[in-house]
Design a protein around this nucleic acid. Structure first.
Lengths: 122, 122
DNA sequence: TCCATATTTAACATGTATGTTAAATACAGA
DNA sequence: TCTGTATTTAACATACATGTTAAATATGGA
């Protein structure tokens, strides 16, 4: 998909368990195509195409070593996706307590127990 | 699809710019299907299906209000994807350090702007 | 009940994704 | 140069994704 925006291409590449497994393997160090293909019950051409998807998405790099193509993780390719998802962090980190407090604080039916100025008797 | 692992389903849902735009809109507050569809040059059934994808992925919630379906962001649905990607953080932070060192070492002008070649952006 | 509004489902078209096997390509070494 | 190993490309099959329009469903109100 050549006319795809960066985020779509990244998330799309990550949306396949085989490709995520390949990235996990590469997190432990570089590997050749054959080494990467070994654990999968899948033909070599199929793995080769997964690697092409990862390469096009900028998630791995390949350089030729004799007749092997050594693959390496390219972490930079994950940055945009990480940044995108990070913007939503507050939506899953907000504790239920905070949400609960917020609702109680804003719901007109509930008395707002905001401790205004503690009123001193005069 | 229903027999898809959670991460694949999440990343797959995020791999579409329309759906990401919908999530961005919902980050500002709940909205009905019609409201969500309005900015898109796309039929209502198409948006409805995007919402189904997001719902199935656990990224939004919908509750019926009269004849409207109000949609809300469900941040919890992003947690697993965020956790997954976070495991790789060191790989892009490390690569940034390398790039930075490389540029300082090799560029006589020592330009300050980041040389982000924006690839495949539409 | 009947109608308007909001949304989903059905039926369909089309392009993309992912797997297969067979052939092609690239390189190292005898 | 010939051969074996590593990997990719070609040709094909099939399933999924995503858009369309038309019909169906659900709710509220005259």
């Amino acid at each position: 998909m050549l006319n795809m925006d960066v985020l779509s291409q990244t998330f799309s590449a990550l949306a396949d368990p085989t490709r995520r497994a390949i990235l996990a393997r590469l997190a432990a160090g570089g590997a050749t195509v054959g080494e990467l293909a070994e654990p999968f019950d899948m033909s070599l051409p199929a793995v080769s195409r997964h690697l092409k998807v990862l390469t096009d998405a900028g998630l791995i790099e390949r350089h030729t070593e004799a007749q092997w193509r050594r693959c390496e993780l390219r972490g930079e390719g994950l940055r945009a996706a990480a940044d995108w998802i990070e913007h939503y962090r507050r939506f899953w980190e907000a504790s239920f307590d905070r949400l609960d407090a917020f609702l109680k604080d804003t719901d007109p039916k509930t008395k707002k127990g905001k401790p205004n100025a503690r009123r001193k008797d005069r």
